[in-house]
């Protein structure tokens, strides 16, 4: 079992948005931490969420399910979940095969994802 680190960045200029920088391994052991982070962001009404996966080494299907699980609520509130820098080939492959990027937009850069991750008007 590996370790995971979740850095949450809350830009001062965007009270509606948060950036999550995920690193390490999201599996059964580390899942609860990520779940809590997402739950807290929902509580703070940050319904636009950018997930930076630059240092993500592995994510289990249950880990991906966390994002899917909150998507309904996020969209109901007019928000969006975007991903950036899914660099690890195996992680990208796993998400891509499932069709994850058909549902969650993927960007090359975090800054680009932040710009695009806005409430729909």
């Amino acid at each position: 079992m590996g370790e995971m680190n979740v850095d949450v960045i809350k830009p001062a200029t965007r009270s509606d948005l948060a950036v999550i920088r995920l690193s390490g391994i999201v599996d059964a052991l580390t899942l609860p931490d990520l779940e809590k982070t997402l739950h807290d962001l929902m509580g703070e009404k940050r319904f636009n969420i950018v997930v930076n996966c630059q240092k993500l080494k592995f994510i289990s299907s249950s880990g991906m399910g966390l994002f899917l699980g909150i998507l309904g609520e996020v969209e109901k509130q007019g928000g969006a979940i975007c991903f950036s820098q899914v660099l690890q080939p195996e992680v990208h492959d796993a998400m891509n095969l499932l069709g994850f990027f058909d549902i969650f937009p993927l960007y090359n850069q975090e800054v680009e994802a932040v710009q695009q991750c806005r409430q729909r008007t």
């Binding site: 899917l68 309904g72 069709g99 994850f100 058909d102 549902i103």
Partner: peptide, 13 residues
Amino acid sequence: KGIAVGLSRNGLR
């Protein structure tokens, strides 16, 4: 081509 069952919650895709 295809996506996993349950990913498109509204079933539109």
